[in-house]
Design a protein around this nucleic acid. Structure first.
Lengths: 110, 110
DNA sequence: TTATATGCTACTGATATCGTAGCAAATCTC
DNA sequence: GAGATTTGCTACGATATCAGTAGCATATAA
């Protein structure tokens, strides 16, 4: 199962420019990615705990996503701790915080 | 083709709590959604222009996404103008701007 | 030695997306 | 007013991705 590499200058789904924002949109647009990052916002979680936190997504998909996120240096695997956000991953998540606040008011309009 | 409704309190993919952030993660995690919002950051685009801006995604998927985004009040269809972000949609996009800046530095680490 | 936890792989069926073709309505063009 | 073009979509078969379950291999615990 080939994992699509995320590298600047490389084409991604729906874009051939390789611009960073397109890389990001491609990666974050994959199913479960945002959720996985979100669930790792606190402490490190091992594989099964993370799987459970994500509502029991299939291990094959989780494993694929973790490989992609590790390749993107957003998540790392720590011995005896499990999976955790890297510094980059935490930065990304911090930038997402305003979004979660926005989501609260947005949801009321639905 | 049933469109999955996005409403507070309703279960979404991977979550049964219906919390706003989960609604948001579900919606934004669907393929092309972030890209579509991104491409609408400037002026309104009609269906084919938007399709083209998104690198020629299939009209069926675009139409599905537009329906979801309209239902979520993030995108609206204006007569003689095409598709455009709503006030909410623009808010969301504004919150995404820091992410695009972050993406620049992140991409360098890959 | 058995039991349990963990990280994963394998497999099958379901769903989502792609890619192309083309239709119906509206608007230009002559 | 008869094409021609543009626009917003729908249909459909092919492919890719995801879901759901089973289970294996290693490690540690009892």
């Amino acid at each position: 199962m080939a994992i699509k590499a995320i590298k600047p200058g490389k084409a991604v789904r729906g874009s051939t420019t390789g611009r960073p924002v397109m890389l990001m949109l491609d990666l974050l647009g994959r199913r479960w990615v945002l959720r996985i990052l979100w669930e790792l916002r606190g402490e490190a979680l091992n594989f099964r705990a993370l799987q459970s936190a994500c509502g029991g997504l299939s291990p094959s998909v989780l494993n694929t996503r973790l490989a992609e996120l590790r390749e993107a240096h957003l998540v790392e695997q720590r011995p005896d701790e499990g999976y955790a956000l890297t510094a980059s991953g935490r930065e990304l998540l911090n930038h997402m915080t305003p979004l979660t606040i926005w989501a609260e008011s947005w949801a009321k309009t639905l």
